[in-house]
Design a protein around this nucleic acid. Structure first.
Lengths: 233, 233
DNA sequence: GTACGTTCACTTGGCAACAAGATACATTGA
DNA sequence: TCAATGTATCTTGTTGCCAAGTGAACGTAC
């Protein structure tokens, strides 16, 4: 195991330092095994982990190649500016697509923060953030039907939640303190975000309040691919 | 590969839901392979990844057991309160030990932020943060000798940098905006932080300024074990 | 000369057999 | 009786072989 980890470390530093060019072949498992005087299985395991980590990809019969690394763009982690607004300054094309809008079953934490009872209906609206047509974040808004009665119908067509709230009379928004966690993607998240299993995700959870009434408008959970951003707080 | 990932997902959710008790044996590789109708190698790879992720440990001849999970304590991520002060409110015992204090070779980014030239000397002071004698963070301070001429001698004995600066006439500190990155531990960091290779680390980089003169006192890089904290920003 | 098929060498992928550690239990001997 | 030792059967760890995909080199028919 130690041997595998050493190899992984070594190869990552070589990839990062640019020893192997983009989409260039890495040494074959056999060659590398001979070089480091370890069984091929060790090299195999190292290569497999590098695949899970998104550094390389392997093709049977051909070889292993370094994966194009994602541009790390700086992202301001503060909840009172909308994602769309955060992204305006960059030269990339940004896009949002709503992927679901559905009622959720009772969840104590969410229902409590929204200030509704267990009998009330709460909808979960999932919006995928794309940069140059590449998924980089999944934005989930939990909204109470008591606050927005038409949310079930409106949900699928909303592109900006902030704009939706503004159209309904809420003018100024405030964000509670956010909690931040590092998680690994579930099967669903891997699929949605098109990432391998060992790409860490940054999960930011916060509440969006109407500043005038202090009413909680939504409970927000955003998960960002950690390989696409450097965060600024 | 998909089969392995499915198994990993499945086992993690079972471990988290408490199906297997602490230090209790998981099904043997052979049994699980039969249950899921996959070759044992697939189960093996899943178990190995769970080891790297810190969920389980395996012993040859005995079996695989679930690892005790770390308590997640909330941590305020803001640079102008010292770590020691952040931790005072908790019931755990906190401790800091200086593990190195050495001159570094020229690094453009660091030298520039400290406002010194390439001929100047900059020291790197590494301090390990322990909670109940368990390492949870590595705090690295980059300090210019021009600003603190005695840093080479004083460094190893400093427990609180803020206190050190106060003793030298700096009373109020300000922190620049921090940048935040998710990284995996290097061999050295794994050793120091006693963590397995796939524990993501949260790297927070910032500058500490004297509020009066706006002089940069130190360039700070802190890496936290992501499995020990929920961060609050 | 060219087009096509065959072979061969090299790649990653997969797996079954074996090695080695642990433990419970039977066997042996004083 | 009791302790030491062998043995069977679990467990995880390791290894080596073969399958399968790829592409270049080569040969052959036209």
């Amino acid at each position: 195991m130690a041997e595998k980890n050493f190899l992984v470390d070594h190869l990552i530093s070589e990839i990062k330092s640019g020893t192997y060019q983009l989409d260039k072949k890495l040494p074959s498992e056999h060659i590398l095994a001979d070089q480091f005087n370890v069984p091929r299985m060790v090299v195999r395991k190292a290569y497999e982990q590098l695949q899970d980590l998104g550094f390389i990809y392997s093709k049977q019969g051909k070889g292993s190649y370094v994966q194009e690394s994602k541009k790390q763009i700086p992202l301001i982690l503060s909840g009172d500016v909308s994602f769309t607004e955060k992204m305006k300054e960059f030269q990339f094309s940004f896009q949002t697509s709503t992927i679901y809008c559905e009622e959720i079953s009772y969840d104590q934490k969410i229902f409590q923060s929204l200030g509704v009872g267990s009998d009330d209906k709460v909808f979960k609206i999932g919006r995928l953030r794309l940069m140059d047509d590449f998924p980089i974040a999944l934005h989930t808004s939990f909204v109470a039907k008591t606050a927005f009665p038409e949310i079930e119908n409106d949900g699928p067509d909303i592109t900006s939640m902030f704009q939706y709230y503004r159209q309904r009379g809420y003018v100024e928004f405030g964000s509670s303190s956010s909690t931040l966690k590092v998680i690994f993607p579930t099967l669903f998240e891997r699929d949605i975000l098109q990432c391998s299993s060992l790409i860490p995700l940054l999960q930011v959870e916060s509440l969006c309040r109407d500043k005038r009434s202090n009413q909680v408008l939504e409970h927000t959970v955003i998960i960002y691919r950690s390989d696409c951003f450097t965060y600024v707080i």
